[in-house]
Amino acid sequence: MNGLRDNISDTLVLTKRSFLRIPRAPDLLLSFTVQPIMFVLLFVYVFGGAIVTPGYAYVDFLMPGIIVQTMAFGGFVTALGLAEDLKKGLVDRFRSLPMSRSAVLSGRTLADVGTNLISLAIMIAVGLLAGFSFDASATHVAAGIGLMLLFGYAFSWVFAFIGLSSSSPEASQSIGFILIFPLTFVSSAFVPVDSMPTALQAFANVNPITTTVDALRALFLDAPAGNAIWGAVAWSLGIAAAFATLSVARYKRAVTR
């Protein structure tokens, strides 16, 4: 009947719920604002002198990497929130309501796009103050921002799956860190891949984070793109589709433990 309209309306109701939470839980707000600033400053000023990045000032090399890492972690709120909803019985309530089976998840992942946009704006501002400069047209910069929001959205679905699969909110956070830190570190985000041992290089070269960072360097710094841009879009769409399917299937069977 009104399936699609109800689905959209349910999603928006739950997106609003996630947004309302932000100003009310100031510790969360810190993670969207202060944490990205901290990472930019630490990497630029602590590692900047030690890491050699041929062809680029380290701050220029770093910014796309740190932005991708921040976007990859942006969805942790979804994992945390879903794990809390499970623990507190809210998932039972939502599942007993005549609402869309995916809205609880899509509401949260959509809200993450908003908070990722905030983090992104803050990081770019801090980066510019620390000496970063774009070497690209406004269209490319805008495309880069769009790619980041898509990429962050895809990882929100990874976190949705983590949140629904972990035994507690605390566990969901540590699982997220354990899974995603190696991905962002063994990639082209912070150091040139050819500076790594051969085994790690092999991993870094197939790592979607590397593809995405290379795509963002192409869009922000006019670096050679190869297939990185379309590769990054394909990875994001694939990750989003796979984890959305897995998460919705899991949600349909989820009950408070």
């Binding site: 349910d10 109701v13 719920r17 019985g89 039972d92 309530r93 005549p98 609402m99």
Partner: peptide, 28 residues
């Protein structure tokens, strides 16, 4: 149906009014 349980399944970061309005919207 309506379900209420031992867990007091309400959102701590919403007000009482916001919680009930949310549920009303989700019942369409």
């Amino acid at each position: 149906i309506g379900l209420a349980g031992q867990y007091a399944a309400v959102d701590e970061n919403l007000t009482g009014a916001e919680n009930l309005e949310m549920v009303g919207r989700l019942y369409h």
